[in-house]
Amino acid sequence: MSQAASVWLVLVAAIVAANLPFMNERLFAVGPRRPQKPFGWRLVELVVFAMITWGLGVGLESSIGQRATQGWEFYAAGACLFITLASPGFVWRYLRRRTHDEVAGGEVP
């Protein structure tokens, strides 16, 4: 896989992984469906998905060549970037205006 393709793969995986906790009610997207997943679970999922994405990036970097050493600044910037990528899902889950049926738990056509 080329270096450019690896970068795009990690970026797309990060965007999907950052928004996944806010887009469904299942634990880690495969667990049992819950009526309303608490915010704490969403944060735990966000951290776990960030680590999985980081692992994907490390694996792809190792397959391309020698892995570069990183300082704490790299991880702090990566965490901030991952949180920024999660903002569309957060806005969709918590800040959008909901209809009365959605709040009551009914089906919306």
Rank of each mutant, 00 (worst) to 15 (best):
K37G: 04
G40S: 14
R67H: 09
G55Q: 05
P88F: 05
W92N: 14
I83L: 15
A14W: 03
A104G: 09
A29W: 13
V108C: 13
R42M: 12
T69Q: 12
R67V: 15
E25H: 07
E73R: 12
A68Y: 09
R26Y: 09
V10L: 09
I64P: 00
G106P: 00
Y75I: 04
V58M: 08
G31F: 04
Y75P: 02
R93Q: 15
R26S: 12
A86C: 03
A68N: 09
A13R: 00
S87R: 08
S63Q: 13
G40V: 14
R26D: 07
I52P: 04
V30C: 02
H100F: 10
W72R: 08
A29I: 12
T69S: 15
F22V: 03
G105H: 03
G89V: 03
W72N: 12
A5M: 06
G59Y: 02
Q66L: 10
L43M: 15
N24Y: 03
V91L: 10
Q36L: 13
V108Y: 11
C80N: 08
I52Q: 08
A13E: 00
R96P: 05
V47K: 04
W72I: 14
F49D: 03
T69Y: 10
W92P: 00
W8I: 12
A29C: 11
L81F: 11
N24R: 06
H100P: 02
W92H: 14
P21W: 01
F90E: 10
G31E: 04
A79G: 12
R67G: 09
L27E: 04
S2V: 07
S63H: 11
G31R: 02
